[in-house]
Amino acid sequence: MAPMDRRKFLSRATVAIAAAIGIGWAVPGVAYVLSPAKKKTGEAEWIVLGAADRVDIGTPSLFKAKVTKTSGWVSTEAEVAVYVVTHDGREFRGFSNVCTHLGCRVRWVADQNEFFCPCHNGVFSVDGQVVAGPPPRGLDEFPVKVEDGQIFVSLEA
């Protein structure tokens, strides 16, 4: 090998190795920094609420469940409350118990057959529609499914 060739080869090899090491740091480094962003909570997480036969036909029943929310290394526990309604025992719907007006908790008043918000007298029908009072829209609805007699709710919607 001529001296110049050898020199060229060594130069290129050295630069190539330096580049390789650089990439060796950069690729995992970038992936490491970006990885929390890529992690979309994505698929709906189904939370068990309880047995489906606890729900009387035509009467909303309140279910409460604990949800652990993890962000990074910090886990927080939250309680969700969902009214589950069915009219035929097959189709179930889940409603948030938070009033769409100012965030008070609504409760089911069986006598009136309606949801009532005590803060400003908001009234919702059994299917979550606004009946009276200041709420701007009906109660938020969550997807609900029943599997093996258990009701699951997804809070993603």
């Binding site: 995992p28 480094g29 490491y32 970006l34 990885s35 929390p36 890529k38 990074g72 290394w73 910090v74």
Partner: peptide, 20 residues
Amino acid sequence: QDAYATVDFISHDLTAGWLI
């Protein structure tokens, strides 16, 4: 409170965290 949890998070939850 956080030191151990964050190291654990780095090692197990992040992409390439174990490598870094």
